[in-house]
Write a protein that binds this DNA or RNA. Structure first.
Length: 271
DNA sequence: CAGCGCCCCTGCCCGC
DNA sequence: TGCGGGCAGGGGCGCT
């Protein structure tokens, strides 16, 4: 479900409700996420004030004085603010209840998500330390894409989806940015020109920021922390449209699999 | 190291 | 209506 825009939408939706509040109770109904939810999580944060809800890549970071909760939504996770009266749904695995009555609730049918704890600065955590720059920060540049791609034979699509290169570009937005940039997803990353990376760089940033503005993409059931769906779906030009006409030239879009992920492009518009 | 496949898991949709 | 197969927004890990 979530790529960077959806995680950012979730962060913005939940933060105002819980920042500055004390954790009253942690309830883990099912600890079997990608990694087991630490059994001492309640002891670690109950009674502590949540200082900030931050984000790094697709990780949500709940910062406390003594450390941070790392939360990942995987493919199917979402977080919502609920009350004690809210009916429990299937797959509501973790609750963090705050003083004042608001509850942060994680629902994740496929359980590819994670809830972890680190008492060290998050930047040194093994899941975070190797991550590339944030796509909407100044650390991300066209030149970085160009330099890091030299001599690489892998497809440019899997290259831009590699979180060591840049974080937050998932399958939807990789397809969309490559279409807008006129670059064929299967082209070896090392053969994409500096000029083409300059365009791709702009398109990645544009598609991500536009999606954030619209509250993310709701394909099936994504809702932000405020319970509202995202409206970016209507902007999708290639994702999920294999076989349908290209919005520019009307030729049927081609669909292939790249790294086990569906990849859609226009054989005329993308070279 | 680079690059590629596998796999974790549930739900849904499609075709028979 | 039931059932099997394939696919889904991620990404760590192990192998070559």
């Amino acid at each position: 479900m979530p790529e960077l825009p959806e995680v950012e939408t979730s962060r913005r939706g939940i933060a105002p409700h819980i920042e500055g509040r004390k954790v009253e109770r942690v309830t883990v109904r099912d600890a079997r996420l990608r990694w087991p939810v630490p059994s001492n999580l309640p002891a670690l944060i109950e009674g502590q004030e949540l200082l900030e809800v931050a984000r790094r890549g697709k990780y949500l970071l709940l910062r406390f004085a003594s450390g941070s909760v790392l939360m990942h939504l995987g493919m199917s996770g979402n977080v919502r603010i609920v009350s004690s009266k809210t009916k429990l749904l299937k797959h509501d695995h973790v609750d963090i209840a705050f003083a004042g009555g608001k509850i942060l609730r994680l629902n994740d049918p496929r359980r590819f998500g994670a809830v972890l704890w680190t008492s060290e600065p998050v930047e040194v955590h093994p899941l975070i330390s190797h991550l590339g720059p944030e796509p909407l920060s100044e650390d991300f540049t066209a030149e970085l894409l160009y330099q890091r791609s030299r001599k690489r034979t892998q497809a440019v699509k899997t290259f831009i989806m590699d979180s060591r290169i840049v974080v937050g570009v998932g399958n939807i937005y990789a397809n969309e940015a490559l279409f807008k940039a006129g670059i064929r997803p299967t082209k070896p990353a090392g053969k994409v020109s500096r000029a083409a990376y300059a365009v791709l760089f702009d398109e990645i940033r544009q598609v991500l920021s536009k999606a954030i503005k619209q509250g993310g993409t709701t394909l099936r059931d994504f809702v932000g922390g405020d319970g509202k769906p995202g409206y970016f779906k209507q902007e999708l030009t290639v994702y999920g449209r294999g076989g349908e006409p290209c919005v520019v030239c009307e030729k049927p879009l081609k669909e292939v699999r790249l790294g086990q992920r569906s990849t859609v492009y226009c054989t005329d518009c993308q070279k």
